[in-house]
């Protein structure tokens, strides 16, 4: 039995089925997973094994077809869209493979974006975003737009955006997938540092070297966990 107290996210027997017309695609088939405070988890598996789907459900971007999902012991798998939006905003930070920055906004405004949906005043938003963007080493780039930044810089902006809400868990879906190995290594250093500072990180990767940074590796195949 796991200690209830330290678990932030607990998925119990999660299944997710997509319907393509009449064809059912079972992306997840009975996945149970616990994420504890200050965990550093990598999720591995072949393409199509359900890694992204799992991360989407864990991060409340999507809801499971069946199974239960608890956040700090509260059942959230039946929450409404509005409630899930609040939870995403309060609990999680996201980093996607393809940076996912808003092209018309400066790096600083991109980082401050989650705070807008928390009704933080403009003054505080800017102050907080500046502090975070500084911590990922981009203080001199904060007024640039994404198209004026390199891939590695964009991903650091995305990390800063994920951090700006002081999230309980940071989810990253193949964060180094679009980067060369050197830049990827720099990004991984940031993740390592974040975990050292007490953050919880869950990342999807199929790169063994990247997964080696994590303390724990979850292996998926055909929508099921085969190793944890």
């Amino acid at each position: 039995m796991k200690k209830k107290t330290d678990s932030i996210c607990r998925a119990v027997d999660i299944a997710k089925t997509y319907w393509l017309g009449k064809v059912a695609v079972e992306a997840l088939r009975g996945v149970s997973l616990d994420i504890e405070r200050n965990d550093y988890v990598s999720i591995m598996g072949a393409s199509g094994s359900g890694k992204s789907t799992l991360v989407h459900i864990l991060s409340c971007l999507d809801t499971p077809t069946s199974g239960k999902y608890y956040l700090e012991n509260t059942l959230v798998s039946k929450y409404s869209d509005e409630e899930l939006a609040k939870i995403r905003n309060k609990f999680f930070g996201f980093i996607f493979q393809s940076f996912s920055l808003l092209p018309r906004l400066s790096a600083l405004d991109n980082v401050a974006l989650p705070l807008i949906y928390r009704n933080v005043s403009k003054h505080e938003r800017i102050a907080k975003a500046k502090e975070i963007i500084d911590s990922v080493g981009l203080a001199d780039r904060m007024y640039h737009r994404p198209n004026e930044l390199s891939g590695g810089e964009c991903q650091r902006v995305a990390i800063a955006r994920a951090l700006v809400n002081d999230p309980k868990v940071i989810y990253a879906d193949e964060p180094t997938g679009n980067l060369d190995s050197k830049t990827g290594a720099e990004i991984m250093e940031i993740f390592d540092r974040l975990v050292d500072e007490g953050n919880t990180v869950v990342m999807v990767t199929h790169d063994m070297n990247v997964a080696a940074h994590a303390r724990r590796t979850v292996k998926l195949r055909d929508g099921q966990i085969i190793d944890d």
Binding site: L61, D81, E82, A85, K86, R88, N89, K90, F94, S100, L101, L102, L113, P114, Y117, R118, R161, N165
Partner: peptide
């Protein structure tokens, strides 16, 4: 569409 996805991912509600 992508912008909407990003906004929603970082916490924008349907009403936002």
């Amino acid at each position: 569409t992508r912008e909407i996805g990003i906004r929603k991912a970082v916490g924008a509600s349907n009403n936002n």
